[in-house]
Design a binder for these strands. Structure first.
Lengths: 243, 243
DNA sequence: CGCCACAAGATTGTTGAACAATCTGAAGAC
DNA sequence: GTCTTCAGATTGTTCAACAATCTTGTGGCG
């Protein structure tokens, strides 16, 4: 398993305060880019050597990424790049079905100019057939929607959810194109929002998300490879302070 | 500052896997109870001795709590119990104004029986004049609302926001009673939800939250004590790997 | 042949000590 | 009174070690 090779070159001139946060950002990037595939085990020994940090610092980064659900920690077994299954997909869409329509309906209003630019970029990506660029534009579209709420916390949550979406797509790289459908749907949504038809936009979003969830779940269960998780033995919980 | 005394006795027979998570839960509880006041500095040396864990493990717990915004980490200065100001209050209500009405409008529906029981408890607490019990019931009411979305992630976010609300109240312990107003408002809301009038409930929630935010902000700026933050010098960011 | 127990070996969980970098606070200079 | 400087304290990070747990391969046994 070429896990270390997947890390590639590191930014050697980075300036940062907390090394732990820096390590977390490096791993976050590599996972987002798909260079670390879902299910990959992140070994402490090998990673700390590769990144040039101590195991303790690496573990601090793991704690951060675990909090972001980008990584799954199994006690005494290690940490793995999260590999979302059907349950996680349903959870993702439960969140989006609440957040996005609410932002459309009640938010101070998204930045229409920004949305137009994102839609234009998505169309360009569609024209030249670049799926990654289409995916990126799609993500920015939905982030811009939440940005309209003015809440950094909600934006952070949306980003987290979109990061998990990336993991879902990376786990199904064999699947057919998913994004091209949504370029024009986003464009329609934009027009509704620009026209101030918020209730209509919210309703459209909800059905849009319902459809997307169904398609994704169908594709997932259809092309579900063997869940390459390690073993299934439940690890013991050890006791402490039980003198 | 009797920081250590505020910790009180520790559960000495706890059984747990990750010591870091256990430490985080202990600190979370102490902060929620108000035994650790907003602004308190959490010294690594003193805390690690008190809790009987190493500094490394304690720092892992700090990373978790920092991610939950319960604690504020300032590089090279230490970690402090978060002390939310006006900006944080506005952020809290930005989140709640999206999450709660959306849950009422679109969620599969909250557990009406649970809500009734919570309202009953709130009335009991009001009758016997117990502000802490009223606060607890209020929090459970709004959590139950979000629970209706079926999303654990949204519930977690709501819990995080409510934890910050507790910090706000702890920082304004001198303020008059805030919760008694809302006992009956929650009851009205419950009736709307039980009657299936979701749109009405969502609208009511939004104005309800607007009013609550205004009251809280007014009270806050009025009785704002000197922000007991340490000094204001901005800490330097040190560089790395700049060979 | 399949299955269970069992003993290495490897990996994670936690600790303690050490050192560098930075901040804090107080003494002293102007 | 304000600024500089210096010692002391605190945080950031690393290293090495050990305990606890998991993994793997081996051999025995039905």
């Amino acid at each position: 398993m070429p896990m270390n090779a997947a890390l590639g070159d590191l930014p050697t001139t980075a300036t940062h305060a907390h090394t732990g946060a820096w390590v977390a950002s490096v791993l976050r990037s590599r996972i987002a880019e798909g260079r670390l595939v879902p299910g990959t085990k992140l070994s402490e020994q090998s990673l700390s050597a590769t990144l040039g940090v101590s195991r303790n610092t690496l573990r601090e980064a793991f704690t951060v990424l675990d909090g972001e659900l980008i990584v799954t920690r199994i006690p005494n077994r290690g940490v793995f790049v999260a590999s979302p299954g059907p349950d996680e997909i349903r959870e993702i869409y439960n969140v989006r079905r609440i957040l996005e329509p609410a932002a459309a309906l009640w938010g101070p209003g998204p930045d229409i100019a920004e949305l137009r630019s994102v839609v234009a970029e998505a169309r360009g990506a569609l024209a030249r057939g670049s799926v990654p660029d289409m995916a990126a534009a799609n993500q920015r579209f939905h982030e811009a929607l939440i940005l309209g709420t003015g809440s950094t916390g909600l934006l952070e949550m949306m980003s987290r959810v979109l990061a998990q979406m990336r993991l879902v797509f990376h786990a199904m790289s064999n699947a057919p194109d998913f994004h091209s459908h949504y370029v024009e749907l986003n464009a329609e949504l934009l027009e509704l929002l620009a026209a101030g038809q918020r209730a209509e936009a919210a309703e459209r979003l909800r059905s849009y998300l319902d459809v997307a969830e169904s398609e994704l779940l169908a594709q997932f269960t259809g092309a579900a490879p063997a869940p390459a998780r390690a073993s299934n033995r439940t690890p013991r919980i050890h006791s402490r302070r039980d003198c």
